[in-house]
């Protein structure tokens, strides 16, 4: 998930594959809810072909700590 620190972000398919391995299918739904909230707020951007996920510049980068924290919580099933 450190890839979210970069402007190119992360490959969504690869990340999903890893998440399933780490936390199971149930984690995907929780993570997607967090992503949708931040996308609506203009903090996360999803490329038009849905292949990459990235933080927006500068607002997403400014809120990176909150985003990463919420994503980790969602992965661990501690969604707030």
């Amino acid at each position: 998930m450190l890839g979210l620190r970069t402007a190119t972000g992360i490959n969504r398919d690869l990340w999903r594959s890893e998440l399933v391995q780490l936390a199971g299918e149930a984690a995907i739904a929780r993570v997607n809810r967090v992503i949708a909230q931040y996308e609506q707020a203009g903090v996360i951007a999803i490329e038009t072909d849905s292949s990459r996920l990235r933080l927006t510049d500068p607002e997403g980068f400014l809120r990176s700590n909150s985003v990463l924290s919420d994503l980790f919580n969602a992965i661990e099933g501690d969604e707030s």
């Binding site: 620190r5 970069t6 402007a7 190119t8 933080l55 510049d57 500068p58 980068f61 400014l62 990176s64």
Partner: peptide
């Protein structure tokens, strides 16, 4: 402090710098 961050992003990208990481 957040405004300083935004100011850096605006000015540096306007001067051909790629903001490639936070």
């Amino acid at each position: 402090a957040a405004e300083m961050y935004r100011r850096a992003a605006d000015r540096l990208t306007a001067n051909r710098y790629d903001h490639y990481e936070i």
